[in-house]
């Protein structure tokens, strides 16, 4: 087909639950359409591939101006007072709610989604500088992570790719 050699590379730099999904959803769509996918995890984005963290990603309501109470079924766009965000339990609650909504849409959890991408042929890499900074090792990452590479390696391996920073 015409787009045979199209390649997409995602740079995942965020570890919040909501920011884990864009690369997973677009990456999966890309694989389904025959586009090569590479994902580079850097800084907080490494939480997505960290065995100890991947199942515990969260979304804090604090300082999130888009999160309104309509997510909880309250009509309109009534805000959540910022002071509420600091109450213990609010972040787990918001995270639980988002996971429930995702589940309702049959969107798999992050760990399972990453495995789907790996099985579909996506190549996952961790950022060397971030790995050194956080004191991590390759064993700390889920199985699909191929290697720990430098920014320069990433640039070499994504020649001709469309690069999306998240």
């Amino acid at each position: 087909m015409a787009e045979q050699n199209r390649k997409v590379a995602f740079i995942c730099s965020k570890g919040n639950l909501d920011m884990a999904y864009p690369a997973l959803i677009m990456g999966w769509a890309a694989l389904g359409n025959g586009i090569d996918v590479t994902i580079f995890f850097t800084f907080w984005g490494m939480d997505m591939i960290n065995k100890a963290r991947v199942d515990h990603l969260e979304i804090p309501p604090l300082a999130n101006s888009s999160m309104k109470m309509n997510m909880m079924g309250i009509p309109g766009y009534i805000g959540i007072p910022q002071i509420m965000g600091v109450i213990p339990g609010m972040t787990p609650f918001a995270s639980w709610l988002m996971k429930k909504k995702m589940d309702g849409l049959e969107v798999p959890p992050v760990r399972e989604y990453l495995q789907m991408l790996v099985d579909g042929g996506a190549k996952l890499y961790a950022c060397k500088m971030s790995v050194d900074m956080f004191g991590l090792k390759k064993e700390d990452f889920i199985d699909g992570v191929i290697d720990i590479v430098s920014a320069s390696d990433f640039m070499d391996m994504t020649e001709g790719s469309q690069i999306i920073f998240i």
């Binding site: 087909m1 045979q4 999966w28 769509a29 694989l31 389904g32 359409n33 025959g34 586009i35 049959e106 798999p108 495995q115 789907m116 099985d119 579909g120 042929g121």
Partner: peptide
């Protein structure tokens, strides 16, 4: 969707991509 096929038809993601390489969804 691909996910529905793998979750319901009992074919793994790997096998699905091997059977219909380079763009199984379409």
């Amino acid at each position: 969707t691909l996910r529905r096929i793998t979750a319901t038809a009992g074919v793994s993601t790997k096998d699905l991509f091997a059977l219909f390489p380079k763009g199984p969804a379409k």
